[in-house]
Computed example of a mutant assay.
Amino acid sequence: MKLDMFSEIQDPRPWSPDHEHTRITEALEQARLADELGYGCWWQVEHHGAEEHSLSSAPELFLAALSQQTRRIRLGHAAVLAPTAINHPIRIAERAAMLDHLSNGRVEMGLTRSTAPEWRLFGIDPAGVRDQVADTFRQVPRMWAGDTTVTGGVPVLPAPYQRPHPPLWQAASTPASFEEAGRRGVGVLGTTLWEPLDRVRRLVELYRTAAADCREPVGAFVNDQVAFFTFVHCAETDEQAMRDGAAAAAAWYTARALVFFEAAEAFVENMAREQALVDAPDGGGLAGAFLRAESAAYGGPNRAQLAIGRILQGETVPDDELFEALSEQDSLIVGSPETCRKKLRAYADLGIDRLMCFQQVGALPHESVLRSMRLIGDLIPEFDSEPAVTPAVTPLG
């Protein structure tokens, strides 16, 4: 299992006059350190209008800067917002290919649908989003291969530096999206932050089954890797990790993310889609079977799910209570190097290929983030014996 870094460039209040510049330059320093320590990939999100939650509104520019300030670490979009009004497929293909040249072939590219607040910001009809993302997954690899039938005879330049093209990924948060990523033959980018490890294991199995059956990937090859991100904070002792503010950071992120993504409304919509899969005459595919098995095996929500439900209803859950509930289901990696080693091993045993360590979270001080990165960096050789290099990929057929 490779240990990667995941960055949103979070910017919690209270704000100093130069808070944005400070956060961005700190993120650059963190990325340079990640490169020195041997982390596998730096994954940068894309969000718009996110205020405290994320300053990462132009990840392609941030990653371009990293391409000139780092040597080995791979550079990942996690993920490009693929609705056409936000990022047209031609611009996605052009920017990623240029970044691939600037970085000498270190790009990993994920795509995602985005969420309601960003659709609203860009004037997007949610009803067309899924089809637009599907079209982008089909079109971008063809553009990279020089196929001009999707662009009216006009070539999209440059072609990527990697041959046949950078690995493709899809951000996923539901069983249906994990199945969808596998059937497309692209890697899956998930989160363990609010998921118990047993559910993560079953999501990995669901994805693996779908990817194994993929005979016509959207790209030139099947990228069957699984990546998950979760909150990681390491200190000299478990007690020091808490004194650094780990509980408050995890609770702050949970509350801010649920509000920014308008998770209450999204939860209701997703429940309706999942019920339709459960009730589908054809069985609803792998996701339908997953959901029926889950319903039969588990009698009710766990402590973390109950706490998140209270937040969705507008209740304030104390930091320590929420942190303990999340820790109880092993969805956080916080503590001393020995504690973090054990928790990392549990993730590796699930068959995860890349763990995206989310370390700059909330109000954690920059120096504490750097220290955590170094302590986790010391563990990298135990989990990844291979250096971070451009993967060798071969077209199918």
Rank of each mutant, 00 (worst) to 15 (best):
P89M: 11
Q69Y: 14
A249Y: 04
E36I: 05
A280R: 13
L286P: 00
L28G: 09
F229N: 08
A247T: 00
V140R: 04
A247K: 00
S385L: 13
Q68K: 15
A210W: 06
Y39S: 09
A289S: 11
G128Q: 10
P89W: 08
P175K: 07
I90D: 12
S295V: 02
E265R: 11
R91F: 12
R202T: 09
R199F: 10
L197F: 10
Y39F: 14
W119E: 04
R32S: 09
P166M: 01
G182K: 03
L99V: 00
L344N: 06
S336T: 03
E51Q: 15
L75Y: 00
V204H: 06
L312G: 06
F267H: 10
V204I: 12
R243Q: 08
L379I: 04
Y253P: 04
D147I: 11
G351F: 04
R184P: 00
M98N: 03
S114W: 05
E60D: 12
T84W: 15
A248T: 11
E205V: 02
P155L: 13
T151Q: 10
F231P: 01
T191A: 15
T191W: 12
V186F: 09
G285H: 08
A235F: 03
S372T: 08
P337L: 02
T22M: 02
E239S: 12
M5Y: 06
M373A: 13
D282G: 06
Q68H: 13
P83T: 15
F6D: 00
R341K: 03
Q225V: 02
Q132A: 07
R273W: 04
P117K: 08
T209A: 14
L344G: 02
M356T: 00
V129A: 07
R120A: 15
I73S: 09
A280I: 13
W252R: 12
Q329A: 04
T192K: 10
P141T: 05
V150Y: 11
L379N: 11
H233F: 01
G314L: 05
H366G: 11
E216G: 00
G49F: 13
V278D: 08
E269F: 01
S177C: 01
F260R: 15
H366N: 12
E52L: 03
A227H: 04
G105Y: 12
R345T: 07
N87W: 15
Q359P: 01
R163V: 06
D378E: 15
T237S: 13
L306A: 06
G76T: 07
D100R: 09
G128H: 02
N270E: 11
L37K: 13
P365C: 09
L306I: 12
E367C: 05
N87Q: 14
A96E: 01
F228N: 07
F228D: 03
E338A: 12
A241W: 04
A348T: 11
Q170E: 00
M242A: 02
E195A: 12
R74N: 07
P141N: 07
M109W: 06
L379K: 07
L55D: 07
R208Y: 06
A172E: 00
G299Q: 05
E118S: 07
T84M: 14
